[in-house]
Design a protein around this nucleic acid. Structure first.
Lengths: 241, 241
DNA sequence: TTCCAAGCGCTTGTATACAGCTGCGCATGT
DNA sequence: ACATGCGCAGCTGTATACAAGCGCTTGGAA
């Protein structure tokens, strides 16, 4: 007998795990803004569970760095300040180069297929220009590469960097929203990089894989710099006087 | 008025935080053996708290990789298998070289003093041959260096690697227990490395700092290899027949 | 003898009640 | 007018009660 109807959800979709996933997604999509307060009661009401699973989710998110807890005064979404950007890109560069290189060295045929599938997923999401889907697929692509590197410690660190990268990436995607042409250009460059990575990982060309991995981080960095430091709209406004 | 006597402990020494620290310490010292079960009730009885703070501690430790949770069947101390050793040293090498180099580049005078103090602490613990203290001081030394690198993401990854290193290191220290001469030799080499690191970080000699950092990992690796693969005691036993 | 299954007990997962802390505001006194 | 302290409200931190899942054991049948 297959679970009594849809009365009770599949267990993984219920309780602490569910709250954790929903909160995490909301944080990564910037629906919950960096620095905003997280009220346990409010969250437990929203997801129709008690405070216990909510607390478990918050503790996990805190340990992962997405949430900051203040003793006796609850939790808030981890802030995103500009000072962290430098070391974010620094870490991403080191880890992405390492993991992509190791993936080229050690990937199994099955892992190569996973990587190719993730790359496909990204390319299929591109025409829709769905920001959330693109971020998610990009994340999966690089995570698939990282898994092929067979380095659990670096994998974990890289995963954290990629997660933070989703928040950073969101900012630029949102900004790009107005200029479809420039967004499309970036997507084209990104897809080209991804294809090269897949090819070099397939051919086990470690040096070329590392080179593209590094260039790919630069592409990301350039996009952020262009977005954050782009001439703002007020520049064209005439001022009185 | 200063807190009503010692009736109530200093808040940080009580509840979830306390349980977390005690469990963590016990795991790192291998007092709780890798793979052993962690019964929530038993732990709550031992530290005289309810299950709630125990669960919080376990969730945090799980997120940090020191504990593994099986859905519906509780938690156990994370296993230490030989397959993880390769990627452990791989990660440690990459991260230690990175962080030590960056520390040489960016350390402030105050951070240099912290590093020197930690190095001193290690040297003072050496004559006592106190395994736990040595592990702890070694951890603090490298963590102080990492903080001086001003790279929060890499710092977190390196901290995880160092924590795992404490467990790995314990194995070799315990094994060395019988042979004081060899332990002393290793301590001498370790202290020499530490002194060089401090000097190069002080002089902001990044290349030399990286070189010593790499050599220091090799020293550690050699010690583990020598311990784990050392000719075992049964080799000398006569067999019947 | 072996395999299956239902019941039982132990452990985890969740809800809820309660206690304690924190920060704010108001009142009171200087 | 400003400082200080008391009280209150709201939240977090902890304890406890309750529900549900899993494995083990025991009984029965092939």
């Amino acid at each position: 007998m297959a679970k009594k109807a849809a009365a009770t959800k599949p267990a993984a979709e219920r309780g602490a795990e569910h709250v954790y996933r929903m909160l995490r997604q909301a944080i990564l999509r910037l629906e919950l803004k960096p620095g905003s307060d997280l009220d346990e009661l409010e969250i437990s009401a929203r997801y129709e569970v008690s405070r216990t699973p909510v607390r478990e989710a918050l503790i996990r998110l805190t340990a992962e760095g997405l949430v900051q807890a203040v003793r006796g005064r609850g939790s808030r979404v981890a802030a995103m300040n500009l000072f962290d950007l430098r070391d974010f890109f620094e870490s991403l560069d080191l880890l992405q180069r390492s993991q992509t290189t190791l993936a080229a060295l050690r990937r199994t045929p099955a892992q190569l297929r996973e990587i190719e599938a993730a790359a496909q997923g990204f390319e299929q999401a591109a025409p829709r220009r769905d920001v959330d889907a693109l971020n998610e697929m990009n994340f999966r692509f690089h995570l698939a590469i990282s898994e092929a590197a067979h380095s659990r410690h670096l994998h974990h660190a890289y995963e954290r960097a990629l997660i933070e990268g989703m928040r950073v990436g969101h900012v630029s995607f949102i900004e790009h929203d107005g200029s479809k042409a420039r967004l499309q250009h970036h997507l084209d460059l990104t897809i080209a990089d991804h294809r090269e990575m897949v090819a070099f990982i397939r051919d086990q060309d470690t040096e070329s894989a590392e080179r593209v991995a590094a260039r790919h981080v630069e592409l990301f960095r350039d996009r952020i710099v262009a977005t954050v430091l782009s001439p703002d709209a007020t520049r064209k406004m005439p001022v009185p006087g």
